[in-house]
Design a protein around this nucleic acid. Sequence first.
DNA 1: TCTGGGGTCCTAGGACCC
DNA 2: TCTGGGGTCCTAGGACCC
Length: 421
Amino acid sequence: MYGLVDCNNFFVSCERLFDPRLNGKKVVVLSNNDGCVIARSNEAKAAGIPMGCPAFKIKEHTDPRQVIQLSARHILYRDLSNRVMKLVGEEVDNLQQYSVDEAFFTLKHKDVDTSHRVMAELVKRIRQYVGIPVSIGFAPSRTLAKVANHIAKKDPRITDGVYWLIRPEAIDIILRRTPIEDVWGVGRRLSASLQSRGIKTAADFVKMPPSLVRSLYSVTLERTQRELMGHDCQIANPVTIAHKTIMTSRTFGKVITSRDEIADAIVSFAERTARQLRDEGSVAGSIMTFVRGDRFREDLPFYSNSCQLALDTPTSDTMTIARQALNALNLIWRDGFAYRKAGVMALDIQRGTAIQLNLFDPDDHGKLRRLMTSIDGINNMYGRRSIKLAPGLQRGEWSPNQNHFNTKSKTLHFYTGMLTT
DNA sequence: TCTGGGGTCCTAGGACCC
DNA sequence: TCTGGGGTCCTAGGACCC
């Protein structure tokens, strides 16, 4: 039996917490470059604004003057997410955070009546202490828990935000009402393909022979099918294990043609990537840098390339990683193109303790580690990027546009001026 | 004018080996 | 006409998620 707790309209709920005037309005939160809609209030959903909608296309769905558009403040959202998860963790077992606003878990209590009472109280407590509305769904598998959570959110008869999807007859009825494209693990491509075979609902899908699903599609989709039948197939890997890759990338506020500007951005991305490696107690074995043009500008020649370089010794040292990221940039840089996006990725990640010292590496790892710890400590105390490598000193030409911060909200500006997450 | 960022897993196919 | 067979390993790319 799995529980899934999910914050309702999470980013919008966070913004509303600090500006109640947003209540009852069509509110959307925009992605990094004020580009796409990444969160919607119920009112915005009802107006037909789809998830991922480019901001400039909102007018195709509703009167944009009635839509409040806000730049994302991911640091604030992370902070509130941590508070929600702390309260949840006190009442459940095996809490596995799946994303910033949702987590799977198992129950402490065996009997459903006690559990239901505890969970309904938890929903109330999160609302009271953190201010964020959440919903909880229960089912025999994670995929079904997703379905149950959806019902907990949507069905007005569910007054306490908790829904149990357990009885086979109930599961059968619900699956018949679940469009195939709403199933977790069935995206646009797969649902189009399944629909062309006459599979319209989750119930239709469950009736397909599993061997056929596997041969036509993949073991992944077959697992989704078995999960819908109520078998736990561990579809979601626990996110608690360390990351296998860590990436930092941004779309620039405008196209960039200067190599120095891009190098400046790459150093910033490398710094952030290295910091995250250290936070997770990991080291990277190789570093990848990529650059690309603007895929929407047909008037400009398009260029996209990446380069992955191994590190002599796996490390989380900012300077080594930045240096290697710049080496990679030098190998893929081409003059005469307009660049719109770039990024740095750490790969071949291992636990930090597993450092294989390179005999010929002149660096003193102990000294470097102490330096990095000091830098992280200062940045923790005085704000991110108080100390940084020279090339990234100021917000550059490449910084993403974010022009819709809610300056009228009571939120500490602490959460605003910081450069993205 | 304006189209995100950060992940995971699986598969097909090529390189290489005996 | 006919071009072994069976492995392993790696990578690129596609699909999905939020």
